[in-house]
Simulated scan of single mutants.
Amino acid sequence: MTIKLGVPRSLHQQLDLEKVKSIFPYGRILNVEVVDGGLICSSGVLVEEMGDKNEDCYIVNVAVYVGY
């Protein structure tokens, strides 16, 4: 399978691609591609106990290509 992530450019370097790969319970991941996309908006909530530093909410678009 191939995974394509649409992520805001300012977050590209912060991605943990191994963690992304780990959420797939089966199948062989051939490639993970990160492209500009997604969205940063305000969640309206800041929970310091959870490590929040701001009210940002990050939206990532994901496409998973599966073939035989």
Results as ranks from 00 to 15, higher is better:
Thr2Arg: 13
Ile3Leu: 05
Ile3Met: 01
Ile3Gly: 00
Lys4Glu: 15
Lys4Gln: 13
Lys4Gly: 00
Leu5Pro: 02
Leu5Ala: 02
Gly6Glu: 15
Gly6Arg: 06
Val7Leu: 07
Val7Arg: 01
Pro8Phe: 03
Arg9Gln: 15
Arg9Val: 14
Ser10Cys: 11
Ser10His: 03
Ser10Leu: 10
Leu11Asn: 07
Leu11Arg: 12
His12Ser: 13
His12Thr: 12
Gln13Asp: 14
Gln13Cys: 03
Gln13Ser: 13
Leu15Gly: 02
Asp16Asn: 15
Leu17Ala: 10
Glu18Cys: 02
Glu18Ile: 05
Lys19Glu: 12
Lys19Arg: 14
Val20Thr: 11
Lys21Asn: 03
Lys21Ile: 02
Ser22Ala: 13
Ser22Gly: 14
Ser22Gln: 12
Ile23Glu: 07
Phe24Gln: 05
Pro25Val: 06
Pro25Gln: 08
Pro25Thr: 08
Tyr26Glu: 07
Tyr26Phe: 12
Tyr26Ser: 13
Gly27Ala: 05
Gly27Arg: 07
Arg28Pro: 03
Arg28Cys: 01
Leu30Val: 00
Leu30Gly: 11
Asn31His: 07
Val32Trp: 03
Val32Thr: 11
Glu33Ile: 12
Glu33Val: 13
Glu33Trp: 00
Val34Thr: 11
Val34Ile: 14
Val34Trp: 08
Asp36Asn: 15
Asp36Phe: 04
Asp36Ser: 14
Asp36Met: 03
Asp36Glu: 15
Asp36Tyr: 05
Gly37His: 02
Gly37Lys: 02
Gly37Asn: 06
Gly38Thr: 03
Leu39Asp: 11
Cys41Phe: 06
Cys41Asp: 13
Cys41Lys: 15
Ser42Asn: 11
Ser42Cys: 07
Ser43Met: 08
Ser43Pro: 04
Gly44Ala: 08
Gly44Glu: 00
Gly44Val: 06
Val45Thr: 10
Val45Gln: 11
Val45Arg: 15
Leu46Glu: 03
Leu46Phe: 09
Leu46Tyr: 08
Val47Gln: 05
Val47Met: 02
Glu48Tyr: 07
Glu48Phe: 07
Glu48Trp: 04
Gly51Thr: 08
Gly51Leu: 08
Gly51Ser: 09
Gly51Tyr: 05
Asp52Gly: 02
Lys53Ala: 10
Lys53Thr: 14
Lys53Met: 11
Lys53Pro: 01
Glu55Gly: 09
Asp56Trp: 06
Cys57Tyr: 15
Cys57Asp: 05
Cys57Arg: 13
Cys57Ile: 00
Tyr58Pro: 01
Tyr58Ile: 14
Ile59Glu: 10
Asn61Leu: 10
Val62Asp: 01
Val62Thr: 15
Ala63Asn: 10
Ala63His: 04
Ala63Cys: 04
Val64Asn: 02
Val64Tyr: 03
Tyr65Val: 15
Val66Cys: 11
Val66Phe: 09
Gly67Ala: 12
Gly67Gln: 11
Gly67Lys: 12
Gly67Ser: 14
Tyr68Arg: 12
Tyr68Cys: 08
Tyr68Met: 05
